[in-house]
Structure formats: C-alpha cells, structure tokens
Amino acid sequence: MSFRILGTGMCVPSRVVTNDELARMLDTSDGWIRQRVGVRERHVCTDETAADLGYRAALDALEDSGCRAGDIDLIIAATVSGEDTAPSVSCSVQQMLGISCSAFDINASCSGFVFLLEIAAGFFARGTAKRVLIIGAERLSRITDWEDRGTCVIFGDGAGAAVLGEGSEYLCSKFTVEGGSDVIHIPQHTGKSPFFGRETASPYIKMRGRETFKYAVEAICSDVNYILDSNGLNIDDISYIVPHQANARIIDFAAERLKLDKSRFYQNIELYGNTSSASIPIALDEMNKNGLLHSGDLLLFTAFGGGLAHAACLVRWTKN
C-alpha cells in the first residue's frame, strides 16, 4: 500500500515581475536572464504569505480530487520560506481549511515535494491516513537578496498541492544527501542571543552557481538512470520526466547528457522561475489541467537542491 494521486492544485500570486522590470532595478537584461536561466517572468507576493498560497493551492487540489476538506486526515507541507516557524505552513492551512487533522512541515529544500510523497507513502503503508494533503509552498521573495543580480532573477513565489488517497501507484524512490555543503546556503535569522558569539551571515539565498549547476545535472542524470534501471524501464515507458524547475540550462544539459530529447522533460520555469518545493507540484498541476496526463502514465519526478539533497521517484498517474 502506498497511494494514488487524486487531485492537484496550484496558486501563484497575481503580481507578475518581468525581466524588464528587474532590468530597471538591477544591472541585468531580459536577454541575459532568459539565456542564463530560462526565466521570462515570475510571480511575487505583495501581501500573501506562503501559507496563503498553500491554502489556495490546497483548495484547488481538493476541488480537483472531488474530496471535501473534512476528508483530509493529514497535511504535510514543504517549505524553506514560510513566514512563521510556528504555526507552520501546514498548521496554518489546516486552520484556514477549518478542519481537524494532523499537520506538520518539512524542510528538504528544493527536493521537498519528493520527500513529501515518501513520507505520505509511509503513513499509507501503516494505515494511519486515508486522505493526505501535501503542499509545497514558498515565498522565496522573502529570502531573496534583491540586490544580488545573480540570484534574485532566478526565483519566484508559488505553491502546489496534491491530494493523495489509498493506492499502490508510488512505485520507486531514491534519496541522496550530501550533508553540510554550502554550495547552496540559506542562513536563518541571526537572533538576539547575548551569549552567541559566532559570526552569522545575512539570511538570504546564496548559491555557488557553477557548482550548483554541476551538482544538479549529475543528480538528474544519476537519478533518472537509477529509476529506469531499477524498474527495468526504458525512457519510452515514461510519459514525462518532471524535474525541479531550477534553471532551464540545467534541464537542457541533463537531457543532452542522457541523450534524451528535451521534450521528455516538462518545463515551465519560463513563467514562474524557480519556486523550490512548489515547482514540481505546480508543474504537475499544469500538466493535469492542460490534459497532458492519461490514466496509466508513468511520471518520473526528479529534484535537487540545498542540503545538498537530491531525490527522485516514479509514480503511476491513474486519474482520468
């Protein structure tokens, strides 16, 4: 027993920030951003919180699933940018939905959604949940250094969600963590302890671009090959590879190294930027709502990011 996906949802803030708008704030250009990252525009919160986005994505996923909010007996959210440590994003969403159920958050950076699937599968395997709401929700604009042209052009805000029910469609997974690397570093708020003497960094996303690129490409390639090989599949058995939307260049070069056509990888980074744990569920919801998915399709999710951590899994889509 694991689960099947009953419904998907997403929410992005209404405020769109184009590359041209960023070029008026920073020494950058639409051409540079598109060529370097593959992003044309991103959505940025003006008064919404990560939990607000997660709530709206949850409502969307509930509607798509045909479930009522009261049917949910567990909410798990992944975030690195929620406003509050407590209440967590999942607890806030629970309150907004007006339901009574278990809820907790995880932090697995940009790989968060694949970890959510694995954790949910564990609850289903133990029979301790029958309907699980999982949410990737990010307000990365909160932890973005808007004066750093190397990073702020990459990210966007958004949330994606899925409602899971009992089933056996979570077929394979792999998790790899190389703990402690600062190739991607998001320091927390320093705090005011009069006893803490260590120098701390400003609480904004920092990435070493070249090493991030190399790590991500290698993560995608090794995980895709692992999922295919360990299941005796070839690429033609997979309907879509759904990668974390970190940077179009990463996805394109991974496709080249795997000798796969780029069209095998679903991409929507152009419209949203990198939304960390929300990027895969947003992509999944787009695919679902745009009619790209058919019952029986095999989907390969592959994610990578801070930790450093990368994760991949194979899911059979059974929703018509």
């Binding site: 370097r36 070249r210 190399k214 070069f253």
Partner: peptide
C-alpha cells in the same frame, strides 16, 4: 560560465 561547466563535465 555554465557553458564552461558543460565543457568541464
């Protein structure tokens, strides 16, 4: 620099 990384890989 990402093209250079591709070459390096």
């Amino acid at each position: 620099s990402l093209d250079v990384m591709e070459l390096l890989m």
